[in-house]
């Protein structure tokens, strides 16, 4: 076997991995030393999580989904309904320093993934704007159906589509932190693996020219469905833990606004890389805060303008921009992935 150098030293040479490890350790250290509030760290992880989940289908395969929040919502509702109605799962949540909550979130993610796989088989036949719009349609359909169904499940307790978990069915926030942290690490690993694998090469080929990719042997339909399902699964998990953290769920989890967050982070950071969404979500988090503090009220207007500038002048995002340059004769393209 040639060219297979899976040694530790090889990985240590990868700045991408170093950045990822740095970010992950950063979150952990900030948590242990209490440098940031739990809420701040949860928000960062949540941002990073949704961006990395959408990245699998939008960044790698080029399918821009404007309705990705649908999986956030489905995961959130699945989680809350599971612990609300299934007693053993409510108890499981509390076990193992967050491992229990993580497992229930996996179930919720699986629910989102099943929906993603089945609708994906259909909507992934559409391309470009048609796909983007079909996913918006999905999101709204799920939103309205949730509004219709949820009140019926427990008419005494649920008002509208809102479900508030009673105190005995939620867990401590630092337990949620652990579960989210674990999810994020897996999500990063999955993104990194995709980037490095034949699967990722195939997805990139699909992004560049789907017909040519198919003729060159890429099983385009299957790859797209797998990518979409993975993206749905992880969005579902993040939505689940986000809801648990908030002590319940309501229909705002389906808001187009969440899809907007994800897309903006990926666009700012750079499509098709692992670092893009990571860096993009950190920038977005800071930017969001900064604008909110200094320009309250008009903060989102400025954000829109910034996004427009990025789309027009830096369409590859920050990482994409850096990848064009060389430092001391070394092409950053080979280092930043």
């Amino acid at each position: 076997m040639t060219g297979k150098e899976s040694t530790l030293s090889h990985y240590l040479k990868s700045p991408t991995l170093i950045v990822i490890v740095f970010v992950v350790l950063g979150i952990l250290i900030a948590r242990i030393l209490g440098m940031s509030t739990l809420d701040t760290l949860m928000t960062i992880m949540y941002f990073m999580g949704i961006a990395l989940s959408l990245n699998i289908i939008m960044g790698f395969a080029g399918y821009v989904s404007f309705g990705h929040a649908v999986f956030l919502g489905l995961g959130g509702y699945a989680y809350v309904l599971l612990v609300y109605f299934v007693k053993p799962l409510a108890q499981l949540q509390n076990m193992g320093f967050g491992l229990g909550a993580f497992l229930v979130a996996v179930l919720a993610g699986l629910f989102a993934a099943v929906i993603a796989a089945s609708v994906g088989a259909a909507v992934l036949r559409l391309r470009g704007a048609f796909f983007a719009i079909a996913t918006i349609g999905l999101d709204f359909t799920a939103l309205y159906l949730m509004k219709a169904i949820v009140p019926e499940l427990n008419p005494e307790q649920f008002f509208g589509a809102q479900i508030i978990l009673p105190a005995d069915k939620i867990v401590e926030k630092d337990v949620v932190f652990n579960a989210m942290f674990l999810t994020l690490i897996i999500l990063l690993a999955v993104n990194y693996y995709i980037r490095k694998s034949p699967f990722g090469v195939g997805l990139t080929a699909i992004k560049e020219d789907e017909d040519a990719a198919e003729v060159l042997g890429v099983p385009t339909t299957m790859f797209k469905i797998i990518a979409f399902t993975l993206a749905g699964f992880f969005a579902g998990m993040v939505g689940a833990l986000f809801s648990l953290n908030g002590g319940g769920v309501d229909e705002t989890l389906f808001n187009l606004g969440h899809s907007i967050d994800m897309i903006v982070m990926i666009v700012i950071g750079g499509l098709g890389t692992v670092l893009g969404p990571v860096v993009g979500s950190l920038i977005y988090f800071e930017l969001y805060d900064l604008l909110l503090v200094h320009y309250p009220g008009v903060n989102l207007i400025i954000l829109g303008i910034i996004v427009a500038i990025v789309v027009l002048f830096f369409p590859e995002g920050l990482i994409g921009l850096l990848r064009k340059y060389k430092v001391k004769g070394v092409r950053l393209r080979d280092l930043l992935e």
Binding site: G128, V267, L300
Partner: peptide, 16 residues
């Protein structure tokens, strides 16, 4: 897709 994103940026700015 880039025009889609550009119009999308406009929509964020205008709506807010």
């Amino acid at each position: 897709m880039s025009t889609l994103l550009a119009m999308f940026a406009l929509s964020i700015a205008l709506l807010n």
